[in-house]
Design a protein around this nucleic acid. Structure first.
Lengths: 215, 215
DNA sequence: CACAACCGGAGACTGCTCCTCCACTCTCTA
DNA sequence: TAGAGAGTGGAGGAGCAGTCTCCGGTTGTG
């Protein structure tokens, strides 16, 4: 679509563009997606005018940076599918995905935000689903997890553990691993297990929830 | 402190005060604590001036209404201590506490917000701790829950399940019960249980986390 | 009935983010 | 190496949302 070779940027312009991207990456990771373009400009040592000229609005910047990060998650899911033990596959996915989100506040926000014009983000997010579905299905079939575990449980568990990630960020960054362990123990099969009291969300309902979900 | 009998309000003033309280209770529950005093006034069918005359700022209103609700939680914890089975005590506490929070958005927000001048709220919250501690301790001692469960786990688990409460509110209000069940299964003792990888937060760390925690 | 208490709500004020504008600077090319 | 024009920076305007005040008019009460 946007051919980068249409009109090559002048050297100083290109340098500033890189600085802006680096600053944005940094600020998104440490302070989340609601930093200001003005903030990013300042952090990049560049005027706000320059920032707005290069990136018409923040969403463009978010897409440019965050699609890659979401794809990293996809890669992790794929790798976890290679793991022969289905249980370790699930565990590995949660551990690595959460570690990524713990290190990047923006990633977490972009994963769980209603689109509003973030097409490519939404697309990347959807691309994540098949691998996660497989991860869950093979674990259920192998009897490695409780039989009523469903695909949509994975993002929701991820979501709720993010709360702890945020809470612990400045106190005990590893805290989320404690609660992940508890949840994982709750996912393992066991003989005296009562069936879950409420059905998992279906794909449609889940998307509906995502859409209505705000901040 | 504020003796309500110093100068009794005129009848119309008292009536408006009640209307404002009712409107605030309603809006806090359905839309959360960040509704405007102007919103509340409109919803009460009263001018904004009247609202500000009666309640100098929103925090006063929040305290007036929310301290009671937090005390309800305390009462729940007490009742659950009466329950002879320690496991059912824990389960009952989570179920009832979460049901309360699911029905009142404001309650959840006030439970997990840094004080900023909400002394009485903070006080009521602290008053909750002893009962919860007992609930946990007797369950651990009875072997009804995993032995490494700690007091501070209860509010944090509550906190993370609130995420699901919010997510599900407009899609499937009972959804949180599914994840509560998973977590509870993760709390039960079992022979092949690895110890939790990270220590629970101590009282001091927990309070530290609460204080740093923003929005 | 008199008058203090009370009312309503327009709008002043504050604090924020987004974004534009334009006098000046720098790069690139001929 | 000089001139055209791309690029710069940051003050400041527009817009918005929440908080709170002020005061002409109304109402309850002794």
């Amino acid at each position: 679509m946007t051919d980068p070779a249409i009109v090559p940027l002048r050297a100083d312009a290109e340098r500033n563009r890189q600085r802006l991207l680096a600053a944005a990456k940094d600020l998104f990771a440490t302070r989340g997606l609601d930093v200001t373009l003005d903030d990013i400009a300042r952090h990049a040592g560049v005027g706000t005018g320059t920032a707005y000229r290069r990136f018409p609005n923040k969403d463009v910047l978010i897409e440019a940076l965050m699609v890659d990060r979401i794809n990293e998650l996809g890669a992790i899911a794929q790798e976890c599918l290679q793991e022969p033990d289905p249980w370790r596959g699930i565990v590995g996915y949660f551990e690595r995905a959460l570690a990524l989100q713990a290190a990047d506040r923006g990633l977490k926000e972009v994963l769980f935000s209603a689109g509003r014009g973030r097409e490519r983000v939404a697309h990347a997010r959807r691309a994540l689903a098949p691998a996660v579905t497989k991860l869950v299905r093979r674990a259920v079939e192998a009897g490695a997890v409780r039989s009523d575990l469903s695909t949509s449980d994975v993002p929701l568990i991820n979501f709720m553990l993010n709360t702890i990630v945020d809470f612990g960020r400045d106190v005990e960054p590893e805290l989320y691993r404690r609660y992940l362990a508890i949840v994982l123990d709750g996912l393992r099969p066991r003989d005296d297990l009562a069936p879950l009291p409420v059905d998992a969300l279906g794909v449609r309902e889940f998307q509906d929830g995502m859409a209505r979900w705000k901040r």
